[in-house]
Simulated assay, not measured.
Amino acid sequence: MTDQIKLVALRRIGSENPQKPERHSFDFVVNGVSLFAATSAAECDMCGALSDPQLEREIARRVNSGTAAMLTSDVPVGGHRVALFVCPECGDFACGAITVRVSRTERGVEWSDFAYENGSDPASKHDLGPFEFEWAIYLNEIGRSKAD
Rank of each mutant, 00 (worst) to 15 (best):
P21F: 09
P122Y: 06
I5V: 15
P88T: 00
Y138E: 01
T39C: 07
F36D: 01
F133G: 01
V30G: 04
R12W: 04
A49M: 05
D121I: 00
C90K: 08
L7R: 08
A83S: 13
V109N: 03
I59S: 11
A83N: 07
V75L: 06
L10Q: 05
S40G: 00
D52C: 08
C90E: 06
N118L: 02
N140A: 14
S34A: 12
M46G: 03
S40L: 12
K146D: 14
V100E: 01
S15R: 14
K20C: 09
L7G: 08
N118H: 04
V82N: 06
Q4R: 15
V63E: 13
I5F: 07
G14W: 05
A115R: 07
N140W: 07
A69R: 15
A136T: 14
K6W: 05
I59C: 05
S112I: 07
G143V: 07
V75N: 11
G79C: 05
G32L: 09
A37Y: 04
D52Q: 02
A60K: 02
T39V: 03
S34M: 06
R144G: 04
G119I: 06
V30Y: 03
G79K: 05
V86I: 15
P130H: 06
Q19I: 13
S34L: 05
A41H: 03
A42H: 08
A49N: 03
K6M: 09
R144S: 07
S51L: 12
D148A: 13
N140V: 09
F114Y: 09
A69W: 10
I137E: 13
N118I: 00
D113G: 08
G66E: 12
V82W: 02
F131E: 01
R57L: 15
P53M: 06
Y116M: 02
R81K: 12
A9T: 00
S124T: 12
L55F: 09
G108I: 12
F93H: 07
I142A: 03
D45E: 10
E134R: 10
P21E: 06
A115L: 02
A136Q: 15
A97Y: 01
N17E: 14
E56H: 08
E58S: 15
S145L: 04
